[in-house]
């Protein structure tokens, strides 16, 4: 059939529909491109003005004392956010320590071992997806009722990090599962066909290939936890803390809550302080997200 059409073309000259000149872009396509550009602009402008506003607000207090001084309710000019910064680091470090091993192992189990056709595995899967959508304040209530009061851990770093672990665990699991699932089945088959055990296959082939994706997801999940204020409001983060945490049983505060605290003060001098703390929080978040992007680009594999 192809040759017949070609023959026709030769016989009758190039038909109208087959000219090579560039046609005018149809208006639908233009409209589409325009709306793409517009959406991008909205995002960039919004982020840009937010950053500018915060930095301008924070400028008077964007100095080293914000890092070295402790909150001071009497004299805002003497106040810093050190206890909140160290509190954030403590809480997030222990959150990572609890939720990453559990999350990764759960993901490996669900992807590599669990039989997807069993109803209980499907139930677990749906459950995890729903848990990821539960509002964080609900985790705060859970933490207050069960971890803080029920287990008697009180308003401590331990309670906060356990609660945040539960909060981000579904996200960590889902991201890790995606990364594991992205490893082609042909790699597993190749390994098994060489007489490797399932464990060897996972440990030597699947995980090395999936780890960058798992790490990226984990960092993004943790950076969500860093910005959380709601559950910690219920868990004692709001108490006025002028010292760094000394252990898991220590009282604590974290950056989002310190910001909340300062903003709700009536005196105007606290506003730049809050803005400066926001800048610090944003810097931490941007650093973590950059690390995630770098990891993804550095170790992304082609098959």
């Amino acid at each position: 059939m192809g040759s017949r059409v070609l023959g026709e073309g030769v016989a009758t000259g190039v038909p109208e529909g087959r000219r090579l000149e560039r046609r005018r872009t149809p208006w639908r396509e233009r409209l589409f491109q325009l709306s793409l550009g517009a959406s991008l602009a909205v995002g960039v402008v919004f982020l840009g003005s937010l950053l500018t506003y915060v930095v301008v607000e924070a400028w008077p207090r964007l100095d080293f004392r914000i890092l070295t001084d402790f909150p001071d309710i009497i004299d805002p000019t003497q106040a810093g956010a050190q206890s909140a910064i160290t509190g954030t680091i403590w809480v997030i470090a222990f959150t990572a320590l609890y939720c990453l091993p559990v999350g990764f192992l759960t993901a490996i189990h669900l992807e590599e071992y669990a039989d997807r056709h069993r109803w209980y595995n499907r139930a677990i899967e749906i459950n995890i997806q729903n848990l990821a959508a539960v509002p964080s304040i609900v985790y705060g209530i859970l933490g207050l009722g069960i971890i803080s009061r029920g287990l008697g851990f009180g308003q401590t770093v331990l309670t906060a990090s356990l609660t945040l672990s539960l909060l981000v665990l579904p996200t960590v699991i889902i991201a890790a599962r995606e990364a594991i699932r992205a490893v082609p089945q042909s790699i597993r088959e190749a390994s098994l066909a060489l007489g490797a055990t399932q464990w060897q296959t996972i440990w030597r082939q699947v995980l090395p290939a999936a780890v960058p994706g798992m790490a990226t997801g984990a960092i993004l999940a943790l950076s969500r936890a860093i910005g959380e204020a709601a559950p910690l409001l219920l868990l004692g983060g709001l108490t006025f803390i002028t010292f760094n945490p000394t252990g898991l049983d220590s009282a604590y505060t974290v950056l989002p809550i310190q910001i909340f605290n300062w903003i709700s003060q009536s005196r105007a001098e606290f506003a730049p302080l809050a803005a400066a703390a926001i800048v610090i929080l944003l810097v931490i978040l941007l650093a973590m997200n950059s690390l995630a992007i770098w990891l993804r680009n550095r170790y992304s594999r082609r098959w």
């Binding site: 790699i187 190749a190 098994l192 066909a193 060489l194 007489g195 082939q205 082609r302």
Partner: peptide, 19 residues
């Protein structure tokens, strides 16, 4: 089955070297 696959190897349709 692990022992079986050590004795009886397999080559697949699409080349699938490990990365």
């Amino acid at each position: 089955p692990i022992e079986v696959r050590r004795r009886i190897g397999m080559v697949f349709q699409k080349p699938n070297p490990f990365p």
